[in-house]
Simulated scan of single mutants.
Amino acid sequence: MTDCLTGCAESPGDFAARLLAWYDRHGRHDLPWQKDVTPYRVWVSEIMLQQTQVGTVIPYFQRFMARFPDVHALAAATQDEVLHHWSGLGYYARGRNLHRAAQQLVDQYQGQFPRQRQALEALPGIGRSTAAAILALSGGQHEAILDGNVKRVLARHRAVQGWTGEAAVQKRLWALAEYLTPAERVADYTQAIMDLGATVCTRGRPRCDACPVADDCLARAQGLQSSLPTPRPRRKQPLRQVCMLIIQGPQGILLEQRPPTGLWGGLWGFPEVASVAEASGWCQAQLGGEPVRHEAMEPFVHTFTHFRLHITPVRVWVQNPAGGVMEAVGRVWYKDTAQAGLGLAAPVTRLLNQITQEDGEINGSHGEMRNAG
């Protein structure tokens, strides 16, 4: 008899059994967050793994755990320090939400993770799938997850048409995820279906010959592996433009802290203007004088999920900025060996490294660089 949900005669237990047998032999068992498993370690790994490959996450996770070994250490840290350890990982709202959620966990739950999915979902940055993953992976609770890898496996196995971001498609996939999640070995099954999507049922060139559930995969039977899941409707990415002022004075390079929300929220970066022509005016208004000289560097494009940012870096040398320039909250003079704990956006780090590599140690004397020797 064909089940009305799965569209096949297969039982959910059969799907899980095949997947678990494959996982026992071929799954990933040595990832850092699979050792000394706690809700905290699972949570941090799940947040880091959003939109980010495992290979990229591993060194960040290890450094993060070394500095913030538990939720109390994370809650007690400053946002600057948290974002510094997040620098380069991207999607910085994840780091800010992680910090805020840690503080709420300490304040409201004495640092303990609630065992109810809805309570976890109420914390900043934790959605339904992440909350379920925390409970399933750390405690074996019967919760279904639906991250990007799982969506791909289920959309192909059941030939679910439509972009997975659509509400109706999401509802269908959630129903499948809940139906197929077994009552036993929930943690292993959860890791197994994620591993299957990450290593076998991949976005490009899925290895169907190695898949434990390929025999009744509808996408494979219909030759739809390359077209499922249905891609997101393409939208032209808008191009924004900005000039970053790399202002170099006697004490180093001027950095400003960005507002707590929005693009690169809470990170440190260069002052920004709309065009190169505004560089001198900005210095006059903010530093109390004209720059000694300025020159534009090679522009480049930094790509975000929804838009591209065309960045024109402008190096600006100043000699004697007004004394009040540093009275503004959220400004520092940066040197390559100082302020090591600041959270910096990737383009800012790139430009600071470029300046150091090309010219040597940052030194603002007379608006020039001194070679480090």
Rank of each mutant, 00 (worst) to 15 (best):
L5Y: 01
T6G: 06
T6W: 04
R18W: 15
L19D: 01
R25A: 14
G27E: 00
L31Y: 10
P32Y: 06
K35M: 15
D36Y: 05
V37Q: 01
Y40P: 01
R41L: 12
I47V: 05
L49A: 13
L49G: 03
T56M: 03
F64N: 07
F64H: 10
A75Q: 03
A75H: 01
A76T: 13
D80K: 09
E81G: 11
V82K: 00
Y92C: 09
R94N: 12
G95L: 02
R96S: 01
L98G: 09
H99Q: 07
L105G: 05
Q108A: 15
Y109K: 06
Q110P: 03
Q110C: 01
Q112P: 09
Q112W: 05
P114V: 01
P114F: 09
Q118D: 05
A131I: 03
A132W: 00
S138I: 06
Q141P: 02
A144L: 04
I145C: 04
D147V: 01
D147H: 12
D147Y: 05
G148R: 03
R158Y: 11
R158N: 09
V160G: 00
Q161D: 10
Q161H: 01
A168D: 13
Y179T: 04
P182Q: 03
A192S: 00
V200S: 07
T202P: 08
G204V: 10
R205V: 11
R207L: 11
C211N: 05
R220H: 05
G223T: 00
P229I: 15
P231Q: 13
L245K: 05
Q248L: 14
G249P: 08
R258Q: 13
P260F: 09
G265E: 13
G266R: 01
L267G: 05
F270Q: 01
F270V: 14
S275G: 13
V276E: 02
C283H: 04
A285W: 07
M297A: 15
M297Y: 03
P299G: 13
V301Y: 08
F304T: 01
H306G: 09
R308I: 08
T312A: 10
T312S: 08
P313S: 11
V314K: 06
N320H: 04
V325M: 15
T337G: 09
G341K: 08
L342E: 04
L351E: 15
N353G: 15
S365G: 12
A372M: 14
